[in-house]
Design a protein around this nucleic acid. Sequence first.
DNA 1: TATGCATCCCTAGGCTCAAA
DNA 2: TTTGAGCCTAGGGATGCATA
Length: 243
Amino acid sequence: MEVRTKNKTDPGVLKWPPLLKATLIRRYKRFMADVRLSNNHLVTAHCPNSGSMLGCSEPGRPVYLTRSSNPRRRLKYTWEMIQMPTSLVGINTLVPNRLVRASILSGKIPELMGYTEIQSEVRFGKASRVDLVLRRDEELCFLEIKNCTLVEDEVAFFPDAVTSRGLKHLIELQEEIKGGHRAVMFYLVQRMDAKAFSPADHIDPAYGAELRKALKAGLEILAYDVKINLETISLGAPLPVKL
DNA sequence: TATGCATCCCTAGGCTCAAA
DNA sequence: TTTGAGCCTAGGGATGCATA
């Protein structure tokens, strides 16, 4: 999916390509989903979310797809959103990186303003890559962005499954803090029905423990939700973090 | 200089296989 | 028997190298 900037005056708003409405039949093999289009055709769509998608992959729900013209793709349709009872939910894990980057460039995140250079997918740690590195003279800020789709009782939780990689990222960010750099974990909640963010201790207690440890070591935690509809997605409001 | 291609990494869980 | 490593799944983005 190629999310496009809506206009030059507001580069922080991303516009969806034309969306196709469908009904989710089943998700399987992590990257694939069978859906029924409005013309009643059954197609397999690419699911750009390797997480467990706990609570947002319920069969029978309305979903929204984009269609790719890339001839090299085996699956032409990409699953972008699912309509849940209380909110549209963006499931594409590539969107948070683009949206956060666009929001930084358009000055919509006060905590991340004032940097003069921004780099994506920068190698760091032990063969890992951090999503964004912000630079201001000699000052570096390592920014890891996580997609968050799980909401229970108006609280957004991350992760939605045990994540050894997420744990590794926390450890590596702490190494950058030891090196004298700023490190920020940014949780983007791709839905509009959360009023707070919290680590999912009931799913992955080790991740929550490491996040609290990292916080004491100097890691900064930001959580924002989004404004999402069938035309655009943009950064919403900051969410209080409950630890 | 521009373009095309290959490679690596990212995402998480299931599976196989080897070692202890 | 248990544990851990490695591979697989699909697609996108970054990077490096080769070629026109």
